[in-house]
Design a protein around this nucleic acid. Structure first.
Lengths: 206, 206
DNA sequence: TACCCCTTGTGATTATTTTCACAATCTCAA
DNA sequence: TTGAGATTGTGAAAATAATCACAAGGGGTA
């Protein structure tokens, strides 16, 4: 089995390859990619080797082919639809975040318990009542539930998402969720990054 | 030196300790914390041991004392002020994100190159022209620059932040930045989490 | 005070991840 | 077709991180 960090490097590989593709560069070496991404070339070769012999010895990697492979590995060959639960600032920001669309991810609808938020938002997205989660999941073909709700209600909302049939949760609430074994949870803690910076600042400058 | 992951676990420790503190629980064992955080108790003891003998053998950890220590380690004992550069959806969402304030971080101002955005936002925050970065840094005592700008201009904006005297950058643009050695960059790639989920979905269900 | 119980702190061990270094083998040119 | 030059793919080694297991103390009680 490959290291967990391997998958986390693939989005970066995807982006630089997209760039090369856009520049009509057909072949690229691991050394060249490494410079751009900021990792070692052997790291890139090792990461890719977990998924087969994807390169051409003596020549490098075929940009279009590798791009297709990475899309496949990251599940980007199929369009994934997201349900954002919690139409607060963070939920709305994610709904309008272009980075998602650029990676084949589509926010299909938002959900909130607050009646005053129901209806259509600035974009062409609709905020539904939380109770409509299960029915809209089927209607819109959503697979991933994004939890942008306060920590205090995160577990309750997670239960509802599981009940509605979601098998994957992307959780922004700073809470460990208890879910059935067949449900995947990806935790996203925005505070970790900034506090890591704060720690380094404190070390260096006090 | 301690593992990088050690620091990334501290925000979670901070939160559960805050909870215990709120419940007037004075003493807590690593075993008890471990259950709540979702890591092993020896992991917690090891993490804490890098910063001294913070517990009491036979009894556990003094919640208030450990909380103070963790605040110190994460640089939360001093209020850190942030400058958000890029007053788009993500920038505005971060500006209003309560999680930051809860960890002693304060967004002091926003900056944007777009004249139509200059002025006061929904909160009591002001959006300044990008050219005011250096002067406002001194005026407002900001230490950390948050880059919520498109990837294409991220390097240019980073250069301006460095020029203005920022020693720490929190970069949301999916681009590797070139900065002087004494400047710290923390990368935040929102797409990694969701594509990790997408990968697992593709593996399990196709 | 003496003893028992409890939990920390930490070397030693194990597991995981990255880097090294080079054989394998592909391309290109003559 | 052959040989030179390039770059992959990958075992082995090194570095990093997590877990184990237990000695070292501290707290509480009689």
């Amino acid at each position: 089995m490959f290291p967990k960090a391997t998958i986390s490097r693939f989005p970066m590989y995807f982006r630089v390859l997209t760039e090369y593709n856009h520049q009509n560069i057909a072949l690229v070496s691991s050394e060249e990619m490494a410079r751009k991404v900021g990792v070692t070339s052997s790291q890139i070769r090792k990461d890719l080797s977990y998924f087969g012999s994807l390169g051409i010895r003596g020549a490098g990697y075929d940009v279009a082919y590798l791009l297709a492979k990475i899309k496949e590995i990251l599940g980007m060959d199929k369009k994934r639809r997201l349900a954002i639960i919690g139409a607060g600032k963070l939920g709305l920001a994610l709904a309008g975040y272009t980075g998602l669309k650029q990676h084949g991810l589509e926010v299909a609808a938002l959900f909130d318990i607050d009646q005053s938020k129901w209806g259509t938002t600035s974009g062409q997205l609709t905020v539904f009542p939380l109770t409509a989660l299960a029915s809209q999941k089927e209607e819109l073909g959503m697979e991933i539930a994004v939890l942008t709700v306060p920590g205090a209600v995160a577990q309750t909302v997670a239960n509802m998402a599981v009940q509605a049939g979601f098998k994957a949760l992307w959780n922004f609430a700073p809470v460990r969720l208890v879910v059935p074994k067949n449900v995947i949870v990806q935790y996203e803690d925005l505070v970790v990054g900034i506090l890591t910076l704060s720690h380094h600042l404190a070390r260096k400058f006090g």
